[in-house]
Design a protein around this nucleic acid. Structure first.
Lengths: 151, 151
DNA sequence: CTTGACCTTCCCATCATTGGAAGGACTAAA
DNA sequence: TTTAGTCCTTCCAATGATGGGAAGGTCAAG
């Protein structure tokens, strides 16, 4: 099957399939004489594995590890579990950061009349020189809201 | 004061100050004869406002709106509140997505022995062809974990 | 043989941020 | 005064995962 059909069947866009190939996450496929990439059901199975890993928020780097463990029949399940739990830790830290932002904002918004007058505690708080550098302090490796898988 | 001191005082890196200037979030500063940017306490105040907005996860675009409302003495507080609440909505959706990922992973990890044997429910689930396209389905505009403010 | 849907590669944009190179400016000490 | 070191300037590139689009080749149906 061609790349478009593999994309359809796996839920990974053709663009991303080519990208995954280019970075070595998936091996280079067989090509037709005309240069078209050809995919097997097995390839689609792998792409689905990758897509579900993405859906769970794993990075491409982690997915590479997961795929190689998946294909290794001698693997130790603790190696997989370690990746998963490490990721859970990151997710939970992110969740806490976002929750702190949301609760701060909700609190401020609660105290804001939201009418046509200019007085606004939200702006006052943002302009408050008393609050130090850190406060919530997003972690060094990951930001606030990222860019999109966007299927 | 020079850009380095303004960076120190505001918690916004010199790099970012130049960037914010280049995109018009802050106005161009006065320069010394040698071309050095010069900042006042007022400028630092604005930079702190911006930094705190970033800490709360607002996008640069939203911050531009907030800054202009902040500087507008005729503003209506409802305009500020609307931006804040819109952002809360986004944050909360993001939180739910991450929570779903984390709980799925924790559940899978619980069922994984995590020993030296190869059997692993985590990989089995990732490889499970029964699960459809969407399932958790990260939203279209924002991804899983983004890049960093990283102070 | 044409049309339209597919495929190819290549480059660009996103978002906020960091890193670094090349070169000029300033400051303190020798 | 020279020199070392730190600061500043601009410009270019990379990050991560993805989409958009152009220019051009291929294929199947009509």
């Amino acid at each position: 099957m061609n790349i478009g059909q593999a994309a359809q069947a796996s839920g990974v866009s053709a663009k991303m399939i080519r990208y995954y190939e280019s970075i070595g996450l998936i091996p280079k496929t067989v090509r037709t004489e005309a240069g078209y990439r050809v995919y097997s059901d097995h390839d689609v199975h792998t792409l689905r594995f990758i897509r579900r890993s993405r859906d769970l928020g794993f990075s491409v780097e982690q997915i590479a590890d997961l795929v190689s463990l998946w294909q290794d029949r001698e693997r130790a399940s603790k190696d997989v579990k370690a990746i998963a739990l490490e990721h859970v830790t990151v997710l939970e830290r992110k969740i806490r950061e976002l929750q702190e932002m949301a609760s701060t904002l909700k609190h401020l918004a609660t105290n804001c009349h939201g009418d046509t007058r200019p007085h606004c505690p939200i702006l006052e708080e943002l302009a408050n020189d008393e609050i130090g550098q850190g406060h919530v302090k997003p972690d060094a490796k990951f930001g606030v809201l990222g860019k999109a898988p966007a299927r």
